[in-house]
Simulated scan of single mutants.
Amino acid sequence: MPNSGPLDESLQFSTVYEAMDSAFRENVVSRALGARGQISTEATNALNSAIQKSRIRVTGYRDSHRAPHPLLREPVSQAVALFPELAGAVLRAWAESQQALHDRVAEYLPNTGMEAEYPDFSAKQFRGRWAANDWHSHRDNFIQNYEDDTGEDDVGLMLCYVTGRAPARSGPGAGDGVAGPASEYLDQFLSYFKALPPTAPEWRGMIPNFV
């Protein structure tokens, strides 16, 4: 059932990007951008719309989503953890571009007592969160049982997508959960806003009383 309550920060789509290192995050974004037009029309349109709403600017393109995906990779990678709609649209496009992996993960889950629930895109968040040790355990079991040569990062992300569960928490008391690169994420957050002009609409969106 979709979440009907307020947005739960611990379940926001941004959590999955915080758990990635920068190289994998750029790979996810690049694959999602390059898949537009090859995945479902709904997923393509959702990603293009989210890029526009995130106020991403690409020199020479009035509509930034029309820019070639190599030009979009860096700004989208910086913005993806800041805007829930963009974060969800990138995740969905990436997952649709990995149909074979998706199908194998969906086949694996019933044998573990889990179901394919998928994120709640209407609420722009995951439906739950992985327990500290379970995410890595199921990722490793999947790779072993399916003799899968897909990278463990891709398998871990697809497990989050198909189950609708956010990555395990990191930090003290979180067990073996993935430790997100917090300082790197903060640096990207600051870099994104440092590049904005004083009149950018993002300031008003982030700070309602900004004048």
Rank of each mutant, 00 (worst) to 15 (best):
L91P: 02
W135F: 13
D149E: 00
F13D: 01
D8R: 08
M20V: 06
D63I: 02
D154E: 15
F189H: 10
L196T: 04
I56Q: 04
W203E: 05
A195Q: 13
Y161V: 13
I207T: 12
S14C: 14
A79K: 05
N111V: 00
E26N: 06
G205S: 11
M1E: 13
T112W: 06
P6E: 06
S183K: 13
S191K: 09
A79Y: 00
K53F: 02
A46C: 06
G205F: 13
P119A: 09
P119K: 06
A50T: 02
I207P: 05
A100R: 10
S77N: 07
Y17W: 12
R36S: 03
E115Q: 10
P208Y: 09
R129Y: 01
P208A: 08
P84K: 14
R204Q: 15
S14D: 04
N141D: 13
A46E: 06
V211T: 14
S4N: 11
E96K: 09
R31G: 05
W135M: 15
S97T: 03
A50H: 02
N209G: 08
Y192H: 12
G205R: 10
Y61C: 10
L101M: 09
V162N: 01
S40H: 07
N209W: 14
T41N: 15
L7A: 10
S10R: 08
M206G: 04
G164A: 05
N3D: 14
P110K: 01
N145I: 06
I207Q: 10
D21V: 06
T163D: 10
A67S: 12
G164R: 00
S4I: 07
A93L: 04
L72I: 02
P201Q: 08
G175Q: 09
E74N: 13
A43K: 00
L71W: 12
T150H: 10
V211I: 11
P119I: 08
P75I: 00
G177Y: 00
G151D: 03
T112V: 07
S4V: 05
P119D: 07
Y161C: 04
P197T: 11
I39T: 07
A174T: 15
S14E: 01
V90N: 03
L7D: 10
P181C: 14
E152M: 07
E147M: 11
L109P: 05
A116G: 04
N45Q: 14
G171Y: 11
T44S: 14
H136I: 09
K124T: 10
V58P: 10
A81G: 05
D140G: 07
E18A: 12
G60V: 00
A23G: 08
R36K: 08
T150L: 04
Y161K: 04
T44R: 03
F121H: 11
S183P: 00
R25W: 03
Q12S: 15
E107P: 03
L190S: 07
V16W: 00
R73E: 14
M114L: 14
G37K: 13
G151R: 07
T59L: 15
I39Y: 08
E85Q: 13
A100G: 10
L91C: 09
V105E: 00
Y118R: 06
P181I: 12
A95W: 00
R36V: 00
